Simulated assay, not measured.
Amino acid sequence: MLTRALIVVLVILNLGVALWWLLRGEPVSEPPASPVGVAQLEVLPPTQAPPAAAIPTNNAPALQDVTPASAPAAAPVAQPPVTPEVPPTAVAATPAPTPAATAVAPATAAPAVAPPAPVPPPTAPAQCVSLGPFADRATAQAAQSRAGSALRAARLREVADAGATRYRVLLPPAASREEAQATVKRIVAAGVSDYYIIAQGEETHAIALGQYRNREGADRRLAALSAAGFKAKMVASGGDGSAQWWLDATLAAGTEAAAARQRSGAAQQRSLECARVR
């Protein structure tokens, strides 16, 4: 029953909508508004005869210029804003912007990346040499002159006892044994080994730091002690007391030790730690 009632209601609604659509009529459009101030053409009805004075001689339909009695007032014209007068000095102080100034600034170019600096080739470590022996100082100086540019930072060194068979390295005697023991503590702290305190003789309270059969070993020991801050000395023994001179120098770049020995006229060449030349 409910379904049939709904169907009947829907049919009645559809019939009402169709009836309204048929009886609503066509919409009447309003004539467009005529512009203000323009003459309008008015067509008279056919049942009304035009006045005799208005009929033209050529039997043309009469035109009637119907102008409104009063035209609407014109819209007020907007007045430009009044610009206050600017003194000439102010105008001169503020120049007008130029097109270049108002243009958009171009994007800043990224800075060019500089190429990496060339890495210089590694330099070879310095080599030092000891040339000799020479009988006296004058002979050693002549040998230095003959070597010339093959040697750098050259210095002369005298060996007091050339015929020595032993070389001892020691620190000078201290004022007391307590002072010598304090020096020994400093030696141990610096990492130096092979030492003892002399207890008697002319070198009492001196600190012996090794005995060597060749001078090169004693020289290396002296260089290590000097780097640690100790002023040791070398004592030669077992020789005849004759002296010799040696030429200690740094080899110039690209110079071989054998070539420097030949130029100086030395009989021997020995490798040397460069710390002793400086």
Rank of each mutant, 00 (worst) to 15 (best):
P72E: 01
L171K: 05
M234N: 04
Q79Y: 08
L63H: 04
E30P: 00
V17C: 03
V277C: 07
T83L: 12
R166V: 07
T67C: 13
L13K: 03
T102I: 13
R137P: 04
I55Y: 15
S242T: 07
G210R: 01
A223I: 02
L171Q: 05
A69V: 04
G25R: 04
G238F: 04
C274G: 05
R155Q: 15
A140F: 07
T204G: 13
L222F: 03
R152Y: 02
N58V: 07
A154K: 11
V235Q: 11
A236G: 15
R166F: 12
K231P: 03
A267N: 13
L63K: 08
Q211E: 15
Q144T: 14
V192A: 10
E216H: 15
L209Q: 09
S226H: 05
P99D: 08
P99V: 10
V192Q: 14
G163R: 03
A252F: 09
G217T: 12
A143P: 04
P106S: 13
A5C: 00
R276N: 02
V91P: 00
A199G: 10
E30V: 01
A33R: 15
A208Q: 10
L131G: 02
E85Y: 06
Y195S: 06
T204Y: 04
V235W: 06
A54I: 09
S29H: 03
G210H: 05
G254L: 09
E26W: 07
I12F: 13
T165Q: 11
A153T: 03
L63A: 11
A223N: 08
N14D: 00
P88Y: 14
V113L: 06
L19P: 00
A154L: 14
V129E: 01
A162H: 09
L19T: 12
R215Y: 01
P46G: 11
A69N: 04
A227V: 07
A107M: 15
A236K: 03
P72D: 02
R166P: 01
